[in-house]
């Protein structure tokens, strides 16, 4: 995936079954952000793979003061890429393998 400067990783092991999964997001490269970023650390949150959309979480992060509005799309894209990877991995495990 494209380097957005914002890293999103699994904060727990994915057993491939639960729909709600813990993710951890942090800024790896501040220069990629448009807005002034207050370095608050890694943000851990749970994301429902079936019912939620990355845009909504990014919006909540902006509203909570972690990021500025102008970086919402970047944050959202970073989450979306990770979520797509998790889903792709799950499909591969289900359809491939045994």
């Amino acid at each position: 995936a494209e380097d957005t400067g914002v890293r999103v990783e699994l904060a727990e092991e994915d057993d491939g079954k639960k729909t709600s999964i813990a993710l951890r997001l942090w800024v790896e490269d501040q220069k990629k952000l448009k807005g002034k970023y207050k370095d608050s650390g890694a943000i851990e949150f749970t994301f429902d793979l079936e019912r939620e959309v990355p845009d909504a979480v990014a919006q909540e992060m902006v509203e909570s003061g972690f990021f500025l509005e102008c970086d919402m799309k970047l944050v959202s894209k970073s989450i979306r890429d990770r979520v797509a990877l998790i889903k792709w991995h799950r499909e591969r495990v289900v359809t491939g393998g045994e």
């Binding site: 890293r7 942090w26 790896e28 490269d29 608050s40 650390g41 890694a42 943000i43 851990e44 949150f45 749970t46 979480v57 909540e60 992060m61 509203e63 909570s64 003061g65 972690f66």
Partner: peptide, 27 residues
């Protein structure tokens, strides 16, 4: 510890903790 919690009005919890140095890109 330096872990803090932020709860958004929609109910989502954000747990904030320091990022280990090793996880940051060289500037």
């Amino acid at each position: 510890s330096s872990t803090t919690q932020v709860v958004h009005s929609a109910g989502r919890r954000f747990i904030v903790s320091p990022v280990p140095e090793s996880r940051l890109k060289e500037q």
